[in-house]
Design a protein around this nucleic acid. Sequence first.
DNA 1: TTGACATATTCCTATATGGGAATATAATTT
DNA 2: AAATTATATTCCCATATAGGAATATGTCAA
Lengths: 117, 117
Amino acid sequence: MARRPTTHDPFNAVAEPRRRQVLGALGTEELSVNELVERLGWNQPMVSKHLGVLKQVGLVSERRVGRQRLYKVNPQQLKPIFDWVMPFERFWNERFDRLDDVLQELQKKEKQNVRKK
Amino acid sequence: MARRPTTHDPFNAVAEPRRRQVLGALGTEELSVNELVERLGWNQPMVSKHLGVLKQVGLVSERRVGRQRLYKVNPQQLKPIFDWVMPFERFWNERFDRLDDVLQELQKKEKQNVRKK
DNA sequence: TTGACATATTCCTATATGGGAATATAATTT
DNA sequence: AAATTATATTCCCATATAGGAATATGTCAA
């Protein structure tokens, strides 16, 4: 086998930096290809190709209006990525570092002891 | 150009499902290669190769003990992924859907009106 | 119908992959 | 030193890129 296609899942689609830029440029707006071309400063085929990949994975939706095609982000397709990476957050977030956990545990036990007395 | 190397950044390293499995299998533990081989049920070279990629991107650290090599996850390297995907969370999380925002805005304005009276 | 505009597609190539199989390296024990 | 254990590396190949350049498709206007 080789590397999985970029269209295989959101993880692979989003591994390409330019594709993340496209999603970022779109944001919550609905933009035409040319508007994206302007904002990103790339040539038109390049934008269209990356949009094509994103569309295949379902990360964007397309709506045809006249000769334009309006694209928008489908954020729920990013949920698998969020769900996978989320559990790791506690390990760099200082609010949840180990010391904190230990201290909270100690405080709990302390309160229990107080009650017993 | 071709696709960026899997060792280019965490996004590309983690695009491979098996690599996510390795990180998941490690979790918060520090495991030897053979322990990973057992837990994952893959052949040893396969585990070593994926660990090699993960090490190059800094997603895991290696510690040599005798003839063993103990690997552990470096969670902070996943932060860029979390930071990129996090802003999108509000769009699939119903607590922050548009209706909610509109209602909150209306409530704010209502309170202001009340004060004016 | 003929342009003009908006977007997609095709052709090309250098480059990197993941997995299998075999083998190499390193550290420990006998 | 030789055998054993733990892990890494090399060689192989089918496959899929991303980008550049050129071109095709589709839609509207005069």
